[in-house]
Amino acid sequence: MVRVGDRLEIPWYSGMTVGELLDRVPEGRECAAVRVNGRIVARPNFHHTPVPEGAQVHLVPMIAGG
């Protein structure tokens, strides 16, 4: 399992990328960066960053910051 936020759990599979995980999360398409076990992963790297089994993923707001 991979935990997204505090409420959502997504089944993990070998080779799962951050991009594939976020395809299964309602707000995943509107997300520019996430934290995977605390580490920042930005959208251009979503599809070549693997998600470890049991990871805790949090979506990082970056919508009008700066």
């Binding site: 520019a32 960066a33 920042i40 930005a42 959208r43 251009p44 790297n45 990082v60 910051g65």
Partner: peptide, 9 residues
């Protein structure tokens, strides 16, 4: 935290 996000984008 903004640095790696900007760098990636």
């Amino acid at each position: 935290h903004i640095v790696p996000i900007m760098n990636a984008h």
